[in-house]
């Protein structure tokens, strides 16, 4: 089910995301004070190449990571195997990436 290639992808994306998650949480903790507004968030992110790269990378990593994680859960808890499992993994990964990329574009495009 989980071979070396998938395992490595999941671990590499995990290590990659650790600092991203920490930063993300830090930003949330910082930004949450006094309530959130779209203007506040977008003022920070729109037109920022840095944030675009940050969240772009984050979305790519999380899509891979979550797809592999969901694959394990679906295999172990629902018994899905073979081609069905492969299709699910790709669909989950690509779907998440598409939605995530759109969101990143939405909040960072100038």
């Amino acid at each position: 089910m989980l071979d070396l290639r998938l395992y490595m992808l999941q671990r590499i994306t995990a290590i990659l995301m650790a600092p991203l998650v920490l930063t993300h949480i830090a930003v949330m903790v910082y930004a949450i004070q006094g309530g959130l507004s779209a203007a506040e968030i977008l003022g920070r992110t729109q037109g920022s190449l840095g944030w675009a790269a940050f969240y772009g990378l984050f979305v790519a990593a999380v899509s891979v990571h979550a797809a592999i994680g969901l694959r394990a859960i679906l295999h172990e808890m629902a018994g899905l195997r073979g081609t069905g499992l492969a299709i699910f993994t790709w669909a989950a990964g690509l779907g998440l990436f598409a939605m995530g990329a759109r969101a990143v574009y939405a909040v960072t495009a100038a």
């Binding site: 089910m1 989980l2 071979d3 070396l4 998938l6 395992y7 394990a72």
Partner: peptide
Amino acid sequence: VSGGGGCHN
């Protein structure tokens, strides 16, 4: 030990 049923599971 690196296949579908290997240690990585």
